[in-house]
Design a protein around this nucleic acid. Structure first.
Lengths: 241, 241
DNA sequence: AGAGTTCGGTACGCAAGCGTACTTTCAAAC
DNA sequence: GTTTGAAAGTACGCTTGCGTACCGAACTCT
């Protein structure tokens, strides 16, 4: 609706849904302590057991949060885009990262150190309230993923993944079958079959790591309920952007 | 180690790890606003979309947190015992429950209403810090479960489940194959096979809904890494009880 | 004591996805 | 222009778990 050309000068931190939801005063104070960085495709922001240093507010692009198991396979447990923040655990007072965070689509990200974040959130306050609510939504996303990974077919989960990426990265984004298989926790060859079906159905198109979403409505049909469920929960908890 | 006979008079709220971790002053103030209830096996504390009313600190017993899908099947996403608190989302400011909470082993539970909880946690403070750290551990548990449900065999997950129950409910607890299958997100008949193997191996014994753990070390062998991983994370985040 | 219900064991054909491996196709590097 | 490597397609036998179904044993209620 309304254009936000007005804040183009200060680099539009408000493209991040959380920063946007703040009152102008709080936002200004928070923005003053943010640092803007470019994160290229596949860059790792942090790994399990790393000392937690920053929280990350994406202005564009996508960060995947991945649980890594002993045998070094892993599964995406959540993804974070403009709507959210990565490294929730730092906000919650943990000193170490539990998961791995990887850039899934080239991103502009505003980051804040733990020390500065504490300055803004100790004694409660607006930012604190907001991040607590985001944490609640993040927990919802995780809970849904537990059920999804157990109950839903790869075809459905694959469609869901495409929708989540499209929401955050647009109609086109980089992803190879190999990488996607690591996100979904299945073999590369299994992804090839599932993605092949979606392509045959005309819902997506891909070549050599370039994915294009063609038919969003079709994907929503093909996806499990989890996409809608999580989406609605976010819309309720982090209101109107 | 130390007996806590000293507070037997006030009903030993300190059996809950979170309450115990508080300073004596804060604890006294918190306890004053707690209400003690008995929760029988299989009682539902709350369902998805219910208005969130209470947080629950178990003094004994186990509460299972279950994600329910549209087709009304569900999967346990986490469990809460003496070490924790159920309904984290209320603390985080959400007004509705996302998951279902069911009593898995008869429990004594101290509950606190959302309004009173806010009184104790607004403007930060000791309880707030502690619950934030617990939230972090809870998120770790969820993340691990996402990976576990995707990557590990039923046999491993079944052993893990027994260990988690034993930690919280002791060597003996009620559980039918039917109910267990709902927790693990598989068929009842599949559970019968997996549990049968564990019994044949002498690790557990069961009849008609009464489960007994016989060989803890053996179960740890049979379980996936997830048990140990989650356990260690809790011990680090909610220190020494 | 008898009837009904719950719990657990078992079976059989089927589908999804795994492990492994071979092949083709395309793009970038030299 | 050729070489090299990455991406994607395909195949085959195998394992896990599903859907459905039937059965006996044990407990409960009357």
């Amino acid at each position: 609706m309304a254009s936000n050309g007005s804040d183009a000068g200060e680099f539009s931190y408000s493209r991040n849904g959380l920063l946007k939801a703040l009152s102008p005063e709080t936002r200004a104070s928070v923005i003053a302590d943010l640092e803007l960085i470019d994160v290229p495709y596949r860059q790792v922001l942090y790994r399990p057991h790393d000392v937690a240093q920053y929280v990350y507010f994406p202005l564009s692009g996508v960060i995947s949060i991945i649980a890594v198991t002993d045998d070094s396979s892993g599964v995406e447990v959540a993804s974070v885009g403009r709507e959210g923040m990565a490294n929730v655990n730092l906000f919650l007072g943990a000193d170490r990262a539990q998961c791995e965070a990887v850039c899934q689509a080239p991103a502009k990200v505003a980051r804040m150190s733990g020390a500065l974040l504490r300055k803004h959130t100790q004694n409660g306050g607006e930012l604190s309230q907001l991040l607590l609510r985001y944490t609640s939504a993040y927990i919802g996303q995780l809970s849904q993923s537990v059920a999804c990974n157990r109950l839903h077919s790869l075809d459905e989960r694959c469609a869901r993944w495409m929708l989540m990426m499209q929401d955050r990265a647009g109609d086109q984004f980089p992803i190879t079958h190999e990488f996607l298989s690591a996100m979904l926790g299945v073999r590369r060859a299994t992804v090839t079959v599932a993605a092949g079906l979606l392509q045959k159905a005309g819902l997506i198109r891909y070549t050599r790591g370039k994915m294009t979403v063609l038919d969003r409505a079709g994907l929503e049909q093909a996806s499990c309920e989890c996409y809608r469920t999580v989406r609605q929960m976010f819309d309720r908890l982090i209101p109107a952007q």
